[in-house]
Amino acid sequence: MKITTETGERHVLAITVDNEAGVLAKITGLFTARGYNIESLTVADISSDHALSRITIVTNGPPPVIDQIIAQLDRLVPVHSVTDLTDQGAHVEREIALVKVAGTGDKRIEALRMADVFRAKVVDTTLTSFIFEITGNSDKVDRFIALMRECGLVEVGRTGVVAIARGSEAL
């Protein structure tokens, strides 16, 4: 017997939760306990009184599983709202990466040139290295990092995706 898995589609979920101890563990634990995927997760406090946090989760699964994920998240006591931005339509996704590249000579020049094309900012430099800051959707960040691998990439830090729906409406 072989174990098979279903292929899924990528969904970006925006979740608002009470900003209290254990909430993040409750949410990530739900994903592990029920076998759902997390491609990325970001969380930060978003209200002036620090009572609410917004979590953005990029997940992957067949449509019925995505529906279950939303229902399961929604019934957690500290969860205020769950919105499937992918399902809602037009939304903006961004993530930031810090990319450290080391090298000298042509590779160093090439790295700088490509950073310019990608509108990455140089936020630190030594004689033998750069740190680039790049902002964009995940694809753009992926492509930039792939190119930097050819130019002496030594380290990457990524924030994961934050996303928000287009238009004037709030969640």
Binding site: G29, L76, V77
Partner: peptide
């Protein structure tokens, strides 16, 4: 609270 997080409807410390 860690141990019972996923076997309770909700928990508090």
């Amino acid at each position: 609270v860690g141990i019972t997080r996923h076997c309770t409807k909700h928990n508090y410390l």
